[in-house]
């Protein structure tokens, strides 16, 4: 119940950021969209699925993730149709399946996904900080640069978050393979 409330809260917060998302791609891509994913993630907190569903759901989540990473869809997400699609798919087809499949993913796969996330944030940072053209028509070039740096800062923060438990051991838990969300596992 508490998780459902949190999910609703995250969703409401995301909707409240509508205006800000138009003005700034950082708010759009790195605040509003993650909040929507979080809403789905929280909503599915107490749900369980059989093991066989884990990989298909993960693939669905990855597809949706990649879809919304495409610069053209970031533009599209500001049009009425795109906006509706964003509010529906990010929680339901990304956050929710991710949460459902995560407990079933092995430590190597989790580590692989995390490492990939870091690399891809690096790529995005690379491209957005230095694109000579506007990647998204809806945003200013300077905002695009800010977004690029935001990607890089996020990558650095995640790297620390994920590496510290592996380097120095889990503060509370015993040794565990991949760091991060071990508590929501199993």
């Amino acid at each position: 119940m508490r998780m459902i409330c949190l999910a609703l809260l995250a969703f409401a917060e995301a909707v409240a950021l509508r205006e800000a998302a138009v003005a700034s791609p950082v708010q759009h891509v790195l605040v509003q969209m993650p909040l929507l994913v979080l809403a789905g993630f929280m909503a599915a907190w107490d749900l369980k699925i059989p093991r066989g569903w884990a990989v298909p759901l993960l693939l669905a989540a990855l597809t949706v993730f990649l879809f919304w990473m495409l610069p053209r869809n970031v533009d599209w997400a500001l049009s009425p149709a795109g906006e509706t699609a964003k509010y529906i798919t990010l929680p339901l087809l990304l956050g929710l399946p991710l949460r459902l499949s995560w407990p079933w993913l092995g430590p190597i796969l989790r580590g692989f996904l995390k490492a990939n996330a870091l690399s891809m944030l690096g790529v995005l940072g690379f491209l957005y900080t230095h694109a000579p053209v506007r990647i998204c028509n809806s945003y200013l070039v300077s905002a695009q640069h800010d977004l690029g740096f935001a990607f890089l800062y996020l990558a650095a923060a995640l790297a620390c978050l994920w590496a510290i438990p592996v380097l120095f051991g889990h503060p509370r838990r015993g040794p565990l393979g991949a760091a991060g969300c071990s508590r929501c596992g199993a």
């Binding site: 597809t63 879809f67 610069p71 053209r72 998204c136």
Partner: peptide, 23 residues
């Protein structure tokens, strides 16, 4: 199936890996 559908969706969404930006 999920992989094929996912690939198909992304293929469509980029006009066959040709267009990544709205421009």
């Amino acid at each position: 199936l999920a992989a094929v559908i996912g690939g198909g969706v992304l293929w469509q969404a980029t006009d066959g890996a040709q267009a990544f930006t709205s421009e």
